[in-house]
Computed example of a mutant assay.
Amino acid sequence: MLTHQPSMPTPDSADRQDAVIVSAHPEQGWSLLSDGTIVFDDTGALLPDGRVVAPHRAVGPLVVA
């Protein structure tokens, strides 16, 4: 994991998505963040301690312009 000034959010914090992407794999649908979290294109995540964060999609009708 990287260190930053000011410090980056921890994997447990609500703003963990603000961590910096250190390795992106868009062809596979995931990225590794500087705090060790793996985030997926479907908005789910795998935390460094193995816990899973379920995808959190917006609820409501899809609006097509």
Rank of each mutant, 00 (worst) to 15 (best):
M1W: 06
M1A: 12
M1N: 06
M1F: 09
T3Q: 08
T3L: 09
T3H: 08
H4G: 01
H4Y: 15
S7C: 03
P9V: 01
P9G: 03
T10I: 00
P11N: 06
P11S: 08
D12K: 13
D12R: 12
S13P: 04
D15M: 04
D15A: 12
D15I: 06
Q17A: 11
Q17F: 14
D18A: 10
A19I: 04
A19D: 05
A19S: 14
I21N: 14
V22N: 06
H25F: 08
H25E: 05
P26Q: 05
P26C: 04
P26L: 02
P26N: 06
E27N: 13
E27F: 08
G29S: 09
G29T: 07
S31Y: 05
S31C: 13
L32T: 13
L32D: 12
L32G: 05
L32V: 15
S34Q: 08
S34N: 05
D35R: 07
G36L: 09
V39I: 11
V39K: 06
F40H: 09
D41P: 00
D42W: 03
D42I: 07
D42G: 04
D42T: 03
T43E: 00
G44Y: 03
G44T: 05
A45H: 04
A45L: 05
L46K: 14
L47S: 03
G50E: 02
R51D: 10
V52T: 12
V52Q: 13
V53E: 13
A54S: 10
P55Q: 01
P55S: 04
P55K: 01
H56L: 03
H56W: 01
A58T: 11
A58I: 10
A58D: 11
A58W: 05
V59D: 11
V59W: 08
V59R: 12
G60R: 04
G60L: 02
P61H: 13
P61N: 12
P61A: 15
L62H: 15
A65R: 10
